[in-house]
Design a binder for these strands. Structure first.
Ligand SMILES: [Mn+2]
Ligand SMILES: [Mn+2]
Ligand SMILES: [Mn+2]
Ligand SMILES: [Mn+2]
Lengths: 219, 219
DNA sequence: TCAAATTTTTAGACTTACCTAAAAATAAAT
DNA sequence: ATTTATTTTTAGGTAAGTCTAAAAATTTGA
């Protein structure tokens, strides 16, 4: 049974591995976990002895299959808990992450399986992120940033990149939510701001906003 | 924010305090938590500095109001989680304790308040134990041991003293459950075994069984 | 290419929560 | 009232996970 700390390291390495193909650097992990590089080196050695990561000094780490499966399962738990909190316990999507960070370390296979069933086997969490299945497989769906959508095109909001409370509450205020159709009406060449329409509301969003909203093109 | 360990100590002292009026001894706590007396002394000093217990060397500890409130809240969380597991997640009453031991240390006021509402503000956990309210007040209901019920009397099962899996599964097998009416038909003077009837089933139970079932007299 | 900057690792220390073994205090028994 | 037994505390140590500061390796770039 892994400690909370070990699980958090595996999860961090997993998240960092999505984009990178080389080994994940000590510093990157330290930044992700808000800790020091020296602490990372220590932990990475331990995970390596447990055969959860491949580690070559000065060359970063990679998850083994075993480590990847455990990481995916922690993420599965995190996201299922987030769904429960939002769908059954009246949490807003900006309130769930902190509690899910705690709940993801509860050890009980039955609990997570039953919760999955209780929730109707959801495929995505409240932020649009895919929920890994029991075997750790993740269904990454194709999605684009709203900023890449051409003028006069429509797209459906399917996720968020930034998940900070500030950003999520801004989206609430503007009534931007998963599943909403967004029409791109104008793009300002100077600052890449966009005029968009959601329902009958038309308003302008900055590039920073547009690069933090994931959408799926309407075919 | 208290550590898991600190919360477990407060909970243990709380449980031990129900019966005892003197200070709770170091040894008693050690036994309850399956640890060593020397470890207890260390922790009790720390809790004393935080004003969660009153501690006088060689004279045991007592919870302060602050400590008692925290302990009651941990117990509140434990029991509410047990209700959730049984009522919503198909756990049997012998399967919930271990997971609840983990879940009781999740810190989120909103989570527990919402869960309470979601469950319809239950007053008792799956074992019949009362759930403390938000302020830490516990409604101890009057209850007797089945072994004290006279022949030809009826009583309703309202709780269990032993909560081991073995015992709870024995009760399942015999279809003894909370809310069931038990009629005492005969008592054997030699070994204090009892012939009882539940519904249409008649069978004998040993004294050991009868002293681990709480009942409420039918008036 | 080789010196400077950056990254990573090592060395040594700290905190929490444990432990064992010995000392001190209290309680029990002669 | 002492001696004996038990309980409790102290002293010193361990393991996990963190930190700072210094050393070593790697990368950058003049
Ligand atoms: Mn999250
Ligand atoms: Mn999420
Ligand atoms: Mn329990
Ligand atoms: Mn219970």
């Amino acid at each position: 049974m892994l400690s909370k700390s070990e699980e958090n390291y595996l999860k961090a390495i997993f998240h960092l591995s999505v984009k990178a193909e080389k080994g994940i650097s000590t510093n990157a992990i330290a930044q992700q976990l808000d800790t020091k590089a020296s602490s990372v080196t220590d932990m990475v050695k331990k995970l390596s002895e447990k055969e959860l990561v491949l580690y070559v000094k000065y060359q970063g780490v990679t998850l083994t299959d075993k480590g990847e499966k455990i990481a995916a399962n922690v993420i599965r738990k995190h996201r299922l808990w987030e769904v429960l909190l939002v769908q059954k316990f009246n949490f807003n999507w900006d309130e769930v992450h902190e509690v899910a960070e705690q709940l993801e370390h509860i050890h009980s296979k039955k609990l997570i399986d039953e919760m999955d069933a209780f929730l109707g086997f959801p495929k995505h969490d409240p932020h649009g992120d895919p929920i890994p299945d029991k075997d750790g497989n993740i269904n990454f769906l194709e999605k684009s940033l709203l900023s890449t959508i051409d003028v006069n095109m429509k797209a459906v909001c399917v996720g968020v990149k930034d998940t900070s409370s500030d950003f999520l509450r801004y989206l609430d205020k503007q009534e931007i939510a998963l599943g909403k159709e967004i029409a791109v009406l104008e793009k300002e060449a100077f600052d890449n701001s966009m005029l968009i329409r959601i329902g009958t509301n038309e308003f302008t969003i900055s590039q920073q906003i547009a690069t933090n909203i994931y959408v799926k093109n309407k075919e």
